[in-house]
């Protein structure tokens, strides 16, 4: 579903991604781990289309199409979803209007009829229940005055409503207490399906106890330096990221 080849990206004068190679198939959950500043969030935003980054080399193929050639909203309409580490507060736009605008924009792009009011309401009700959110939050401005945990839930709610094909979760666990982490993880797990790929970007192993990945990659210095199965995450938890210096040389030498 997603094929990243030799991806290089820079922000102003700093090269952040230095040749990422990654292949994610439908139905798989991949975890991308790594120390702070390794380029994890950059990778997530490059996939979503943030315009602050310049792609200097490489390619990204999504569902057989050139992802990097698509506008931000086009990527979303084609099924790419990024759950933000820092969700944006938008004063004066209600969550409900925002969600409906997003759903219908995507439907319009895909030549589908707009969602009926009753379908929207019942779908919203179901997803709110899944994430333990109160419906009164939907009449409030997008993320405005939400606690850290509420914002993260709201991200997963949006994901559940938009039903993406490729979901990228950027540090969704940061700032969550254990109860909120469980709820959010359940929300994500409910979306696991053979047609959907999920990339979980995280600094800590903790989240992966709840969202169990098929593959784990370690990103360091703008490159994937190791890949493995879920045991790699536990190894990292145990040893920390300090072994990476030798590790990256080993990879480079191999």
């Amino acid at each position: 579903m997603l094929e990243i080849k030799n991806l290089h990206a820079r922000s102003e004068d700093t090269e952040i991604l230095k040749g990422i190679n990654l292949s994610v198939a439908a139905g798989e959950v991949h975890a991308i781990m790594g120390p702070n500043g390794s380029g994890k969030s950059t990778l997530a935003h490059v996939l979503a289309g943030r315009e602050d980054y310049e792609i200097t080399e490489g390619e990204v193929t999504y569902d057989g199409k050139d992802l990097l050639d698509m506008e931000i909203e086009e990527r979303a309409a084609e099924g790419v979803f990024l759950a933000y580490q820092y969700p944006v507060e938008i004063s004066g736009v209600s969550n409900k209007y925002f969600l409906k605008a997003a759903i219908n924009s995507i439907r319009k792009h895909n030549d589908q009829p707009v969602i009926s009011r009753s379908d929207f309401v019942s779908m919203l009700k179901e997803k709110l229940a899944l994430l333990g959110m109160d419906k009164s939050m939907m009449d409030r401005s997008v993320n405005e005055g939400f606690s850290g945990g509420e914002k993260k839930r709201n991200e997963i709610l949006q994901m559940a409503m938009l039903e993406p094909k490729l979901a990228v979760l950027d540090e969704t666990d940061s700032g969550l207490d254990i109860d909120a982490l469980k709820i959010v993880s359940e929300g994500v797990n409910a979306l696991r399906s053979p047609e959907r790929a999920i990339i979980v970007v995280t600094h800590y192993q903790r989240l992966l106890d709840y969202i169990v990945p098929d593959k784990v990659h370690v990103l360091a210095g703008g490159k994937i330096v190791r890949s493995g199965d879920k045991s790699l995450a536990l190894e990292l938890e145990d040893k920390g990221y300090s072994f990476l210096n030798e590790g990256s040389e080993a990879v480079a030498a191999s």
Binding site: A48, G49, R50, E51, E71, I72, E73, R75, A76, A77, F81, L82, Y84, P87, V88, I90, V93, Y97, F98, A101, A102, I103, S105, I106, H109, Q158, L162
Partner: peptide, 17 residues
Amino acid sequence: YYLRSRGVSKDLARKML
């Protein structure tokens, strides 16, 4: 960016803001 990354067109996102 946030609005557009949810599928909302640039034009509608501007109008909303």
